[in-house]
């Protein structure tokens, strides 16, 4: 944790990973970046996010649960209310283990759930499977040995396939409960996380020119080479994802991602969204007219927002 002598208004050294430097809200501006992080950290500790006991992905929880965690921080409470007024009625929390982005986004949980709830399930599944299959050559081109990714790919593929084709062992199709169970089970959940990390890395390596200008060491801010960045901050388990990784994974999976930043940026009661737009077929739109996977970001952590 940073020293808490840093005053508000001073440029934060690593503004890109917290987005706190631009806080204009008077109430939040009174808090230093260190205090904001501390507030979040305290919340994470109180709610047990820092322990290994929390489920990898939770049941849907009403927004009041989230609200209750920000007792004494009216700006945050107002922003949570604003999210709710925009139709986001529930949140699914993920364990704060550095893998939460991969676990909840894109395909991992929220995406599979989107496919599961698509108006034309068969089309959505076929489309997801074909997108997924098309990622294999990308991994190969990045130099990964099939031995490294095949089993993880298979875990992911079979979860999506199970939406329409009953599992050979259990004879059951994927239901929301089975999906949640699968993602709460560390082996399956972590296998999918690993596949998405490898895919993200392969996407960055394949389109090096698109990404190389944006690769910085998250702690020192020094520019990094593609290979070094991918090995240290994409492939390695437990390393949190930032914009570069999110952009790359959203592209590789052809998925739209919207992230609500509840981190003190911006002003007023509105929550700032960042969009990662890609084409996607056959998925339902939510009340905001978007078919994106929606995540809630708080410094150092991603959860899923649902309508």
């Amino acid at each position: 944790m940073e020293s808490n002598t840093q005053r508000s208004g001073e440029p934060a050294e690593q503004s890109q990973d917290t987005g706190l430097s631009g806080a204009k809200d008077p109430e939040l501006a009174k808090l230093s970046r260190a205090q904001l992080l501390e507030l979040n950290q305290k919340f994470l500790e109180e709610t047990g996010l820092e322990t290994r006991e929390r489920a990898l992905i939770s049941q849907r929880l009403p927004m009041t649960v989230l609200r209750g965690e920000y007792d004494g921080a009216p700006t945050f409470v107002r922003r949570i209310d604003w999210l709710e007024s925009k139709g986001y009625k529930t949140v699914r929390r993920s364990r704060g283990d550095g893998d939460c982005f991969y676990r909840c986004t894109s395909i991992a949980f929220a995406y599979v759930e989107k496919v599961l709830n698509a108006p034309d399930v068969a089309l959505a599944v076929a489309s997801a499977l074909s997108t997924l299959e098309a990622t294999l050559p990308l991994l190969k081109a990045a130099g990964f040995e099939p031995m490294v990714y095949e089993d993880f790919y298979e875990v992911f593929r079979s979860v999506i396939e199970q939406i329409v084709t009953p599992d050979a062992a259990t004879g059951e199709r994927l239901t929301p409960d089975i999906l949640l169970e699968a993602f709460q089970e560390p082996q399956a959940s972590n296998s999918i996380v690993v596949y998405l990390r490898l895919l993200t890395s392969a996407q960055i390596r394949a389109a090096e020119d698109d990404y190389s200008a944006f690769l910085f060491h998250p702690d020192t801010g020094e520019p990094m080479g593609v290979r070094e960045f991918c090995e240290s901050f994409v492939e390695a388990i437990g390393r949190e994802a930032d914009h570069v990784q999110i952009t790359a994974l959203a592209r590789a999976l052809k998925v739209n991602v919207r992230i609500a930043y509840l981190d003190g940026r911006g002003s007023g009661d509105a929550v700032e969204f960042v969009e990662f737009q890609n084409r996607i077929d056959g998925l339902e739109s939510d009340s905001s007219g978007s078919n994106a996977v929606v995540l809630l970001y708080r410094p150092g952590h991603y959860d899923i927002l649902e309508t």
């Binding site: 490294v148 690993v194 090995e231 390695a236 388990i237």
Partner: peptide
């Protein structure tokens, strides 16, 4: 050091 190589399933 933060930059040193870590375990991932890519290792062998």
């Amino acid at each position: 050091e933060a930059a040193s190589e870590r375990w991932s399933p890519v290792q062998s």
